[in-house]
Every structure is written in C-alpha cells, then in structure tokens.
C-alpha cells in the first residue's frame, strides 16, 4: 500500500492549523498597523505614519511567507478574514504602546508554534520558524525603543517633533558592539 499520507501531507493537521492561525494573526497585525499609520498621517506625524506603513508591509510579508510555506507543503492555506482594527487613540504615545503590545502578542504566538513543532517532532517547520523568532527579536526591540523615546524626550510639542525626527532611525543592530 502506497504511503500517500507521507507523499501528500508533509505537515500534521495540528501544525497546519496553528500556521493558518498565524497567517491570520499576521494579517490582522498588518491591518492594525495601517490603522496606526492612518491616525499618524492625518495628524501630521508623517515619519511616524511612514514607520507604521513600513511595519504593515513587513507583517504582510510575514503572512505571505507562512502562507507560501503552507502551499509549498501541499497544505490547505486559508486566506483569513480580518476584523476591524482599533483606529482611535488618545495620543501618539498610545499609538506606539499599541504597536508594542501587538509585537509582543505576535512573538508569543510564534513561540507557541515553535513549542508545538517540538512537541510534534516537526523539525522542518521548527527550522522554518527560526527566521520568525529572530525577526520578532528585532520587531520587539524597535517597538520598545520607539516607545522609550517618549520616556526620554517627554510628550510636549518639541518632544513629539524630535520623536518624529528619530522614529525612522531606530534600528536593531543584532546585538553587535560598537
């Protein structure tokens, strides 16, 4: 009897489900970043808007990376429905707090996938997810650092102007010295 299961089902149902869930999380995250970008844009925070537009594109890329992995593995990839995002905020700081919360939530979900892969003995997907683990270190770092700008500079008009200037230059150097 042919081993059709192995030929056509590279990933288990459990792993397929959790990856599809992550596709939805990334799509939701991408949509939420768009809402943050819109809030900033209409209030004249052009650089902050550019920052969030870029983040939105990044999340979309993450979504597609997982989506393509599922289809490459001959699994049923589900194009997700995305709920309405929060689009009203009290201040710019609140917007960046929301961004950090989203990144933490994505990181937790990524770590859950890695744990599920280990439990299922799915070495290939665990290896595939390694890139996302590293990516989340960077994403969280950037979100945390931008939020810290508010602690360092304050929230008056001059401070907000300085944050506008600096927000596009916050980068993760990968822990390199110097």
């Amino acid at each position: 009897m042919k081993d059709i299961l192995r030929r056509h089902q590279v990933l288990s149902e459990e792993i397929t489900d959790i990856l599809n869930k992550q596709v939805k999380i990334e799509a939701q995250s991408s949509a939420s970043y768009l809402a943050l970008a819109a809030w900033c844009d209409v209030r004249g925070y052009d650089n902050c808007a550019a920052f969030f537009f870029k983040q939105s594109e990044e999340e979309r890329k993450h979504q597609m990376k997982i989506f393509r992995y599922l289809t490459d593995m001959e699994c049923n990839a589900i194009s997700p429905a995305v709920a309405e995002s929060q689009y009203e905020f009290g201040s710019l700081r609140e917007v960046f707090e929301k961004a950090l919360e989203m990144e933490i939530s994505v990181t937790d979900a990524i770590h859950d996938i890695v744990r599920a892969c280990r439990k299922a003995g799915d070495i290939a997907t665990e290896e595939f997810m390694r890139w996302f683990v590293q990516e989340q270190i960077e994403e969280e770092f950037v979100a945390r650092r931008t939020l810290e700008l508010f602690d360092v500079l304050g929230e008056d008009k001059i401070a907000l102007g300085m944050i506008e200037e600096r927000v596009l230059h916050v980068e993760y150097d990968g822990g390199e010295e110097g």
Binding site: I4, R7, H8, Q9, E13, C75, N76
Partner: peptide, 10 residues
Amino acid sequence: RFCELIVFKS
C-alpha cells in the same frame, strides 16, 4: 484526492 479528503475531514 488527498487534499480534498483533508478538507472534508477538517
């Protein structure tokens, strides 16, 4: 086909 069976099972 196998992929259809998986969807039906799901």
